[in-house]
Design a protein around this nucleic acid. Sequence first.
RNA 1: GCCCCUCUAGCUCAACGGUAGAGCAGCGGACUUUUAAUCCGUUGGUUCGGGGUUCGAGACCCCGGGGGGGCACCA
Length: 576
Amino acid sequence: MLTAGAPPPPGPAIRISGLAAEPGVAAHSAEATTNIAAVRVSRVRSIREPTYHRVPNSSRSASPKRYGLAPVSHEETDVEPDPIGSGLAAEKAKRLDKVRALRDTGTNPYPYRFDRSHTLEQLRTTYGSFGPGTETDQRVTVAGRMMLRRTQGKLIFATLVDRSGEVQLFVSKSVIGDEGFAAFGEFDLGDWLGVEGTVMTTRNGELSVKVDRVDLLSKAVRPMPDKWHGLTDTDTRFRQRYADLIVNEEARRAFRIRHEIIASFRRTLQSEGFIEVETPVLHIEAGGAHARPFVTYHNTLDMQLYLRIALELHLKRLIVGGMDRVFEIGRIFRNEGISTRHNPEFTMMELYQAFADYSEMIDITEQLITQAAVDATGSSVLTIGDEEVDLAQPWRRARMIDLIAEAIGTEVHPSMPVETLRALADQHGIACNPAWGSGKIIEELFEATAESAVIRPTFVTGHPVEISPLARTDRNDPFLTERFELFVLGRELANGYSELNDPVEQRARFEAEQASRQAGNVEAGTVDEDYLRALEYGMPPTGGLGIGMDRVAMLIAGVQSIKEVILFPTLRPEVL
RNA sequence: GCCCCUCUAGCUCAACGGUAGAGCAGCGGACUUUUAAUCCGUUGGUUCGGGGUUCGAGACCCCGGGGGGGCACCA
């Protein structure tokens, strides 16, 4: 469990005394080039063949760029890199020589398993209270990656790191013996070690394991990034997330928080009686949202399929089926731009609750996110923008049309003639598509004039019917829906409504969507006949909610880019 | 798709258009209480790729590539 509410201050990459790596900028991995240079042998050929290479599709310029796997040349293997020199190739050669030497003496440098008595966190919990200069006869076995080493003549201090924490190894020649001491000296930073020894503290009070036996658990043949600065180059951090996670505490922290949030959501929903389900990713129609889908193809069915853009329509079928309270946490795919707030594949939680309406969805949104913040950081207080916000306090609720009026000083309503609204939009620099109706223009006005100013958590309610084809009409205003979106820091985090359950009205809404599609709106929906059939069986009054889990993770982790909370964000393939 | 920024040793970063450097890592040496250990010595470069300008280019110009940010796109 994470306990700190605020991000740790900048500091070293390898976590020592609670400090952490500072994310930064610049630099580029030019490893292939260096390989060649370091090897310095003219016989090297072809190793600059990229692992991935572009095969321009010559038939049509409009066709996509294609990337294929090319065979990696191994011609350089007959070259003996100088193991005395430096550079990546020489470093790898030296470490591979050590692997061979170990095998020659009957030691497997990649053994099958290791049994430890404690994780490093457990070690600290159990023995962390000893004062300076304590010697014990408590025998422990621990395992981790050696990230730092300080040689002191006949004594070596090393920092062993596992997922849970770190501990110092105290390797004394007089304890481990000449042979063991020499063997330990052959280990490289980055090697995985399993050690056995007794618990002690140094004169300075540092908890340590006095090592009397060491096993190499896995040889790292590639050097670790800078022990102090870690990785700062975003390209390398995202492509080589493994290396990022090894050296950047801040990266580990963000994904830990993400995990805690999702686990918290599941706990809350389970305690509220929701059933977790899984629905198809491959859709015959990409419905439930306005977005461009990814298209794929099933060979045996000889059929085009879409990757889902929302979970909504299948989950509501389950409400028809009487499942009452259902949720799904799953990946959805939208074939749209990439930005600090968008990744083509991202994680959505959607839930549907029979007999509820949107006001209960607002309540559960607050509950889920506030509890997640507490579970992930230990506090409901977050720094949002420049402000400290306690999520436990009620969040603002405001109608979309009122927020627009607040921003521009003019009342708007979707009942107003489209020409009037179009003129207003013009005044605010919005280029209106002639196909847009009043409702769509109001949404555009909101996005252009009010959205970015919504910093503190705010439920924006009362979206026009035109832009909400699956939401129920407001019981007091036929032009609006009983819908809300949660905005924080100008970003949409959640969306929910009282679900439209009248099959006749739903069909009319779908047909309006289809008309819009035929008018050229690629994001407009189609008529989902099977969904309509489900509604004809009768869907109870239902509240529905979708929450963008990546954006919630961004909020609670306090990071500025969605790539910081997605382990392997979508990138162009690397040319090796 | 457009605009701006960026790419130098394994990593983190320097270098007015004038000999490509430092720290860490590596290698050799000293050191039994260090903790980014320290100290002495030392290896390592197709400066993202390709063209051009110039007596001379890491730097300036053009084309291409990766990444970041912004815009557009994204209910």
